[in-house]
Amino acid sequence: MSERIKKVLSFLRKNPSFTIGLIIILITLFIAIFADSIVPFDPAASSPKDRLAPPFWSSGAKPGHILGTDYIGRDLVSRVFMGIRTSVFISFLSVGTAIIIGMTVGLISGLSHPGPIDSILMRITDIQMGFPFIVLAIIILTLVEPTVTSCIVVLSLASWPAYARVLRSNVMLEKEMDYIAAAKAMGASSTRIAIKYLGRNFLPSILPVMPMDIAGAIITESLLSFMSIGIQPPNISLGNIMADGRNYISTSWWITAIPGVVVMIIVLALNLMGDTLQKYFDPKLNK
């Protein structure tokens, strides 16, 4: 056990950018989970006399409002925290959903290869990849009410085909391996074998992609609510805050800029983690 911890620690020491990314993500998760207890103000409470207060480093800042306030005097820190909660919740769950859909499709497809089911599933995957995502998202979110659940489902549509393809090719490769052939000869069913040896290749191939996909989901989520087709007020999302602030951008830039910087930092952290993982699992890049 301690051996394992040592290994992890040495990995973290050797990969400081991963460590920094991890720390930022842990902080983000902390904020997301405890958002409603750590917010300094009620994120929905307006206070007209404090409206459009700048962040603490500018003159005219209002005490207490570290990152300033928006156009009706709502505290930006509190709103950003709640926005982080929404964004993190939606993006993590959407990638989770994508992995589940992708795994199911990939597994069925890989196992039934070659065959009509495989072909059909792969064409569906192609259709999904070829459909301009933003258009699909707008149409679906017009068709159904844009709630948290529908946003999760829509976002998961963006990334499941990649998982399906990875898993499918893994299953196909495994099926042809000698030891599988041997196991088959000994009477094991191909389904069992595939599942048993899944972990061998699948996890390493999706692990580095996952942070990048979550990052993509965070950006897309904020984009959808920015275009006012995603999460609707009074739910707070980082994209909503940016959209609200856009009208004030030439006088009160912070309302739009700060949520953007927050998105950037979270995405940056995820990219740093993904980068390291990619190099770790793909020795070719690790030079």
Binding site: A215, I219, S222, L223, F226, M242, R246, I249, S250, W253, T256, A257, G260, V263, M264, I265, V267, L268, N271, L272, D275
Partner: peptide, 21 residues
């Protein structure tokens, strides 16, 4: 890494403000 992490639309808004306005 930084450029890859910035939301595209956000960069657009900020650049319009800085460069154009």
């Amino acid at each position: 890494v930084l450029f890859q992490s910035m939301p595209n639309y956000w960069v657009g808004i900020i650049l319009i403000q800085i460069i154009s306005v």
